[in-house]
Amino acid sequence: MELILLRHGKAEDHRPGGDFDRRLEEKGIRQARRAAKLLAGVDRLPEVVLSSPRIRAKETAEHFCDEAGLPEPMFQPWLDCGMDPETALRELRGFSEFGRVMIVGHEPDFSGLAEWLLGAPAGSVEVKKGSLVGLEVVPQGRRARLLFSIPPKMIG
């Protein structure tokens, strides 16, 4: 399975009332749409998009899907903040019929997942807001091969 990580785009600052309802800023919307254009331009759009239920991730996934002409994203509780790599891999097995899956979520979860799958040392990967990381995952094990890592400045 090819796994594409899209970290949510630039969102509102933290609020005293909580983190769940933070919305994307205009820059975050542009990041999501540009990521879709970039992947479409190289024929690497996902077959399915899964997203954290937090507003900023949901909006990122929705704008990505809208720009790419894909079906609506599916919102998955396991992608919420605090995602565990082993849980993510186990849940992703339920989508093994898809050759290319995108997940939209948060830090430090995505960096931790990439490090875990690649066998990289802690702190060696950083997935910035609005960036894309592509991994070829071996579903039976804890292994992946890095296909690409595109920081937001290169997306446009």
Rank of each mutant, 00 (worst) to 15 (best):
K128G: 01
R7W: 12
G134M: 04
G18P: 07
L79S: 01
S52F: 11
G94Q: 06
A61F: 08
I155Q: 01
G119Y: 09
L146H: 05
E67H: 05
Q76V: 14
G17A: 13
G69W: 11
R7H: 05
L45R: 00
T60S: 13
G94P: 01
M102Y: 09
R34I: 00
V127P: 04
R54I: 13
L146V: 03
V42M: 14
G94K: 11
L70E: 13
P151Q: 08
D109K: 00
W116K: 02
L70T: 01
K10V: 12
R93N: 06
G141K: 08
S52H: 05
P77E: 14
A144Q: 08
R143A: 14
R33S: 02
W78G: 00
L135E: 13
V133A: 10
G41V: 03
G9L: 05
V125W: 12
F110P: 02
L147R: 14
S51F: 11
I103W: 10
W116S: 01
A68E: 14
D84S: 11
H8I: 03
C81F: 12
A68R: 03
A122D: 12
R142Q: 15
L132Q: 02
E115K: 00
G9N: 04
L92W: 07
S111C: 03
P53R: 02
G82Q: 12
S131V: 04
L38C: 01
L147T: 12
S51Y: 11
H14I: 13
P71T: 02
R56S: 01
P139F: 09
V101K: 01
P151S: 09
G99I: 04
R145N: 15
T60L: 06
P46W: 11
F148H: 06
E126V: 12
E136T: 10
R34G: 01
P108M: 05
S124V: 05
I150P: 03
M1H: 08
R54A: 14
R15D: 10
V49S: 06
A61Q: 07
G105L: 03
H14E: 15
V101M: 00
M83P: 07
A35N: 00
S131Q: 12
L147M: 11
D80C: 03
E126W: 13
D21P: 06
G141W: 11
D109N: 09
T60P: 07
R54Q: 14
I29Y: 04
G134P: 07
E59W: 10
K129D: 09
L38M: 10
E67R: 06
L6F: 11
V49A: 01
P121M: 04
S51M: 10
L45D: 10
E47Y: 04
G9T: 06
D109P: 07
A122E: 15
D21T: 04
V127G: 03
G41A: 09
D109R: 00
P77Q: 10
F110T: 01
D21W: 12
L118H: 10
P16G: 13
E59L: 07
V104P: 09
Q140I: 11
L92F: 05
D109W: 06
E107W: 09
S149G: 15
A114T: 15
R22S: 05
M154F: 12
E86V: 15
S51I: 07
E107S: 02
G130E: 13
D19T: 05
K128W: 11
G156R: 07
R142P: 05
A40R: 13
W116N: 01
K37Q: 15
P77T: 02
Q76I: 15
D19P: 05
D66S: 14
R143S: 13
M1I: 08
R33V: 04
I150V: 14
L113T: 00
E72T: 14
